[in-house]
Computed example of a mutant assay.
Amino acid sequence: MQIRTLALAAFAAASFHAQADTVALWDFNTFSCSSACTDLPKGATANGGKMSMVGGATFTSAGGSGTGSAFNTTTYAAQGAGDLTRGVQFMVDTSGYTDLVLSFSQRNSDTASAWTALQYTVDGSTWLNATTFLMPSNKSTSFVDGLRFDFSSILEANNNESFGVRFLATFAPGTSEYIGTKDSLASAYRTSGTIRYDNVMFSGTAIPDTAPIPEPQTYALMLAGLAAVGLLARRRRAG
């Protein structure tokens, strides 16, 4: 799929269908780890889901969007190296659901990569580009809430035990270098810059697992039809 580079406002306002069910949610509210963290937070999932780190990125907890904690990532690649190689990944079994929508909150430090790529997989190993988005410099010290990406047009994401997404630091479009969130300058980027994620949620529409129960009048019509067939059969035998 071709990469679509979107301004943050357009990304946040991407169209999505109303969803009735939460397929997976990582709110990080009880996550607490300040250094040398190795145990990744677990989310609440309908079928199962797992977080993992990509590349050499590391993590701690930090203040969240609203109450509780957020998932704070750092140790990104050196300037001009490792494009799309470091970040965080979420694998989610979407079996029994369609029309997947991803929503989340993000906060960058001044020296983090201003550009992030969202990728997805439908086979658990091949990663495709969904979009790239830019965190504005005036939001470098606060969360941007309500970010969304609608996967409903990607039919392979439906009812799929091997679906997943990942957020990766990426070079500024058309360049071979990262730019820092503050002032969008390459000189502002640092490997120690941090990107926080909070309230990462996958929602979707449950696939009905049973056939609709016929209304009473439908049963009556069925019985009347069977009775008519039986009567006709008896008349034929009698004739």
Rank of each mutant, 00 (worst) to 15 (best):
Q2G: 08
R4H: 11
T5D: 14
A7Q: 06
A9E: 15
A14D: 09
H17K: 08
H17R: 03
T22K: 11
V23N: 09
F28G: 00
N29M: 06
F31I: 00
S34I: 00
T38R: 00
K42R: 11
A44Q: 11
T45C: 12
M51F: 04
G64P: 06
S65P: 00
G66L: 04
G66S: 05
S69Y: 06
A70Q: 03
F71I: 00
Y76W: 15
A77F: 05
Q79D: 09
A81M: 09
G87I: 05
V88T: 13
F90P: 04
T94D: 09
T94S: 10
S95V: 13
G96V: 09
F104L: 15
Q106L: 05
D110K: 02
A112I: 03
A114K: 11
Y120R: 05
V122G: 04
D123E: 08
L128I: 04
T132E: 11
L134Q: 04
L134N: 06
T141D: 15
T141H: 10
F143Y: 15
D145H: 01
G146A: 12
S152G: 01
S153K: 10
A157T: 15
S162L: 13
G164K: 01
G164M: 01
V165M: 11
R166P: 08
R166W: 10
T170G: 00
F171C: 11
F171E: 09
G174W: 06
G174F: 03
T175V: 06
K182G: 01
D183Y: 03
L185I: 11
A186Y: 02
D198C: 03
T205C: 03
A206E: 13
D209R: 01
Q217G: 00
Y219D: 12
L221R: 01
A224T: 08
G225H: 05
G225M: 09
V229F: 15
L232Y: 10
R235H: 13
R236W: 13
R236A: 15
R236I: 14
R237G: 05
